[in-house]
Design a protein around this nucleic acid. Sequence first.
DNA 1: TGCTAATTGATATTTGATTCTCACTTATTG
DNA 2: CAATAAGTGAGAATCAAATATCAATTAGCA
Lengths: 137, 137
Amino acid sequence: MERKTKQRDVLFAVLEEAQGPMSPLELLEAAKRSVPGIGIATIYRNIKSFVDEGIAQPVHLPGEPDRYELSGKSHHHHFFCRDCKRTFEMNGCPGHLERLAPPGFEVDGHDFFLYGRCTDCKAPPPPRRKRPPALAT
Amino acid sequence: MERKTKQRDVLFAVLEEAQGPMSPLELLEAAKRSVPGIGIATIYRNIKSFVDEGIAQPVHLPGEPDRYELSGKSHHHHFFCRDCKRTFEMNGCPGHLERLAPPGFEVDGHDFFLYGRCTDCKAPPPPRRKRPPALAT
DNA sequence: TGCTAATTGATATTTGATTCTCACTTATTG
DNA sequence: CAATAAGTGAGAATCAAATATCAATTAGCA
């Protein structure tokens, strides 16, 4: 097992160049640009493979299907665009968070999200909503 | 429509006394203490009714089914217990959040969660994991 | 180059959450 | 109390996400 396939390479490349974690369907669309015939099953299979190998990890979003990003990134959070539904990586962290936990509770992690509109979807000019624009230029 | 039923009253009471937003299954279990024969469909129907009427609202959690809480609460966030899976309301907010958004992005909201163990599940004594303990004392 | 097992694509199936169906029960109103 | 329509409980149905199946393709190696 663990063969080098065009599909697997393309998926890794897509994740590597992504601006944030991607959903299986986003990966499918992006990968199709390099491997037009690629199917959704292959996306799920490779995601699972990446996750099992520690190459990628799932990003859970409130009320949204999981996204996936490459492992090894430093601590960060995400911005979710309400229009195109894409998730973007953000730098930094609010910090000073545990203080908000109820007394006696043991905190071992946190999550933080910002919502709004990404530059591509924000007001005019060139409104390009509901669908992610091309990734790389 | 809009009749006063025992089931509806019990569900409202459960939400009113809850320490945080509750899932349909949590509501089912809690309601059974007052109405043993209550079914899951009734839970969903009443939740929908509450939400439509603005009495309650959904709380989306990362990688978890929606919870529901009564409307009208002041701005707050949630603590999720990794053991019993219950969600607790917290006071306060990290604040100073928009500064983290990528340049040019338009922020119109945020979410924030703390993870760990609630007092009931935290270390010994009386370990009571995987299942929510009785609500009221 | 040829063999063999892993991978793929298309599609069926499963899973978990939620909604629907329908016969029965019950809250409201006269 | 009687009439009647809304509400309920149990189980079937639905929906989206994820996984499994299987014949065809292909990577890795002799």
